[in-house]
């Protein structure tokens, strides 16, 4: 078998891996940030609801949610495998990202909120102008982690027949009998993606760093 074709076939799966990640990571961020704000600044009930959400979602293996969304709930909503996968990973990630952002909010001192309110900013204005800009900066480092997890978890959509990297490695491995090269290629691609995303976020963190004297 032609090595170039072999690698090319597996590489084509990257589109799906990146696609799933491109949906799940940002939607998890938006939901997670929203939920974190509710968890920190919401009322007692809201706090409890968010904490329950976080516990439940982080307790569900992504593959289970994915299968529920695609197979069990097919009566209510007819999602394509790609979207079922992206949405389930996004939902689960929202719980993890909620914890990341929640931690980041708590690491921004309560004093920042007090100082903002003291000059007459409303709570919402304080959150938007003071809390979030600092919080999101603090969250970049833990995000590299989350990005890596989603890139790798995106392989789970193979269970629904999305021809992403892992599934392609399985298929080409089966047809050629060269499983080891196939899985190594897949591992290498995943590694490259995770490495690149980490570097990109690292650059972003550096760029957004607040200047300070050493």
């Amino acid at each position: 078998m032609d090595v170039a074709n072999f690698i090319k076939y597996i590489l084509q799966g990257t589109v799906y891996t990146l696609g799933v990640t491109a949906v799940a990571l940002p939607s998890g961020l938006i939901l997670g940030t929203l939920f974190a704000l509710l968890a920190v600044y919401g009322g007692k009930t809201l706090k409890q609801v968010m904490s329950l959400y976080s516990t439940v979602m982080r307790g569900i293996p992504p593959i289970v949610l994915l299968l529920i969304l695609y197979f069990v709930m097919s009566g209510e909503i007819n999602l394509s495998p790609f979207w079922a996968g992206s949405i389930s990973l996004g939902i689960i990630s929202s719980a993890y990202q909620m914890e990341i952002v929640r931690g980041a909010i708590l690491s921004v001192s309560a004093g920042q909120m007090m100082a903002a309110r003291a000059i007459g900013l409303t709570r919402m204005q304080a959150i938007i102008n003071i809390i979030l800009p600092q919080t999101l900066r603090n969250a970049i480092a833990p995000w590299s982690n989350e990005a890596a997890i989603i890139i790798k978890d995106s392989s789970l959509v193979y269970a629904l027949g999305v021809p992403e990297i892992l599934r392609r490695a399985q298929l080409i491995g089966a047809s050629s009998g060269s499983y080891l090269p196939a899985y190594l290629t897949a591992a290498l691609i995943y590694f490259a993606l995770v490495f690149a995303s980490g570097r990109l976020l690292g650059l972003l963190e550096k760029k957004l760093e607040i200047p300070a004297n050493p």
Binding site: G111, Q112, A115, A116, R117, A118, I119, G120, R137
Partner: peptide, 20 residues
């Protein structure tokens, strides 16, 4: 309250400048 706070300036022990 937001209007009230506008009219009352407050300076804190630990400055509490907006770090960013």
């Amino acid at each position: 309250e937001d209007l009230v706070r506008q009219h009352i300036g407050m300076v804190f022990q630990n400055f509490l400048l907006f770090n960013h």
